[in-house]
């Protein structure tokens, strides 16, 4: 990827962050912290790596995205809207009655959602099933799964991990959004994860440890995960900052599931817009 493409991708991530904060502010409800920490991975997937067709969301050969940490769906909704799966105005309906943009993703309501999630620990196993189906059918699509570090406290994550190893799912990439915080406090306080990278490696994954908010590193890791087809599933163990891009949200437990007020919204918008490298389109 050349510098120009990288810059464009970084600006896409900034746009995605802006849309995340905008929709959560309008809804006065949602999860900004984790949506911002996963934003660079989300952007890299939808705007560089994934083969999807917004006109044909259930295209059988598409790459799949599983947001196992379903509460950060504003990040995915923003990506889907920016990609053209549905009109941008739909983002204003987040969490509202009758909206396709449910508080947690619903595959039968929102085009582009490949599996309904929201109950933590469950999406990863679904991603494993999708990757398995791809292998069975001889298709070359990939499955990208985003899990939270707090979510890795769920036992089902590890059940799914051992299945990915057993069935040699090198078409599966799990992105561990290691932002160090969960609802009740830091992960170290609530339930220490020790080293999730080592854990996934021990479960038979090729593991790439990166700064998950550095687009260059995200792209490099996903590119490796894409080209290395050695029968081993891939884990991108990504150190991220919860609330990344908005100074007062960064590394703050309190911004897990709270919407900004008008003043906070204004400041967040100013800070995020300042992140654009090229001029705003």
């Amino acid at each position: 990827m050349d510098q120009k493409e990288l810059t464009a991708l970084k600006d896409k991530a900034t746009e995605l962050r802006i849309r995340v904060i905008d929709m959560i502010w309008k809804a006065q409800s949602g999860h900004p912290g984790g949506s911002l920490s996963v934003a660079d991975f989300m952007t890299a997937c939808y705007f560089h790596f994934m083969r999807v067709d917004p006109q044909n969301p259930r295209w059988p050969d598409r790459d799949r995205f599983v947001l196992s940490k379903g509460h950060v769906c504003p990040a995915q909704y923003a990506a889907l809207a920016m990609k053209g799966f549905f009109p941008m105005e739909a983002l204003d309906t987040l969490r509202k009655e009758g909206s396709m943009l449910q508080g947690h993703p619903s595959m039968n309501k929102c085009p582009g959602i490949d599996i309904s999630t929201g109950s933590l620990g469950q999406g990863f196993a679904c991603g494993v099933g999708m990757a398995m189906a791809g292998k069975m059918d001889g298709k070359d699509y990939r499955v990208y799964v985003a899990v939270g570090d707090g979510e890795c406290q769920e036992g089902e994550i590890w059940e799914a991990a051992q299945t990915a190893h057993k069935y040699k799912l090198d078409n599966l990439v799990v992105f561990v959004d290691n932002n160090g915080l969960q609802l009740d406090g830091t992960t170290d306080e609530v339930m220490p994860n020790i080293d999730l990278g080592k854990k996934f490696a021990a479960f038979g994954f090729d593991t790439y440890e990166i700064d998950g908010n550095d687009m260059e590193q995200v792209v490099a890791a996903l590119e490796l995960a894409r080209v290395v087809r050695n029968g081993r599933p891939k884990c991108v163990y990504a150190h991220t900052v919860k609330g990344k891009g908005v100074s007062f949200m960064e590394n703050q437990v309190g911004w897990h599931g709270v919407a900004p007020n008008d003043e906070e919204y204004k400041q967040a918008m100013e800070e995020l817009k300042a992140l654009y490298i090229e001029k705003e389109a």
Partner: peptide, 8 residues
Amino acid sequence: GVAAGLAT
């Protein structure tokens, strides 16, 4: 979970 993914 795997079954759900396969079904999709």
